[in-house]
Design a protein around this nucleic acid. Structure first.
Length: 260
DNA sequence: ATGGTTGGTCGCCAA
């Protein structure tokens, strides 16, 4: 089984690249963030032609999340108690085969101490409370998406410069560690100890070329899933310009492989 | 600290 997560920064703009990625990697499941489309605008036919059904929690202009799967998925939820921004489409949970999947797009937080940052901390806490009270974490559960936080300094290109800034503050990291403490593994870290491997680079100032990024796109798995995880990689090539498929997202896909 | 670039939408907001 192969699962990936990718913040596409507009499904409309990124569709040619998404279809190429699906063909190239042939994941069983793809968690997608920043769809920025209403459900009625989703190109279900194009996705179906590529072999995927789509569950979508859509929104115009901002946010929007989707779960694509080769086999039929069943929606579980698109909201959770205590979400400080229930009007924003940032979560979608589904059952696909024997797997429970939660696709998340966590609040960015703008700057540490801002109202948006405070909402981000509340969202992370509420998300954790919902997950622990709703799902059987002895079973295979995958929580993945754009967490808008770098779990530790290995996940930040300039830890000194980012110290205290949103995505790298201690309260965000404490919320993340508390989520892991429910019984999740950061699947990338099962296979990689090194720093400097990132999933997001600012569009500006040639950040990608200078390797100035963050690892904020994460796949978390409960133990029954984590023990089957054989590989996690980040497809840096997807962040580069490509001929014929349009501009890249500012995020690269994170791709995990599992024994069946 | 600010600014730079991208996307959605058409004067800006969000990232």
């Amino acid at each position: 089984m192969k699962v990936l997560t990718w913040n596409v920064n507009s499904l409309r703009t990124r569709l040619p690249r998404l279809l190429a990625l699906l063909e190239r990697e042939a994941p069983d499941v793809a968690l997608i963030q920043e769809v920025k489309m209403l459900e009625e605008e989703i190109p279900y036919d194009r996705l179906a032609a590529a072999g995927y059904s789509a569950l979508v929690n859509g929104q115009r202009t901002y946010n929007g999340v989707a779960i694509l799967s080769r086999h039929h998925g069943e929606e579980i939820a698109r909201a959770f108690p205590g979400d400080p921004v229930p009007e924003e489409a940032r979560v979608l949970a589904a059952r696909v085969g024997g797997l429970t999947i939660v696709c998340v797009y966590v609040i960015n937080g703008q700057s540490a101490g801002s109202p948006a940052y405070e909402r981000k901390l509340v969202q992370l806490r509420s998300l954790r409370d919902w997950i622990t009270s709703t799902f059987d974490l002895e079973q295979p559960v995958l929580v993945g998406g754009d967490f808008n936080l770098a779990p530790d300094d290995r996940d930040v290109w300039d830890p000194a410069g980012w110290k205290g800034h949103t995505h790298a503050t201690e309260p965000e990291r404490a919320e993340f560690r508390a989520l892991l403490d429910l019984g999740f593994a950061d699947l990338f870290r099962l296979h990689h100890d090194e720093g400097g491997v990132f999933s997001w680079w600012d569009y500006r100032q040639g950040a990608f070329h200078k390797r100035e990024g963050l690892r904020i796109d994460l796949l978390l798995g409960t133990e029954p899933l984590a023990r089957r995880c054989t590989e996690v990689r980040i497809d840096r090539n997807e962040r580069k310009p490509s001929a014929g498929e349009g501009a890249p997202s500012d995020h690269a896909p994170v791709i995990a492989t599992f024994d069946d």
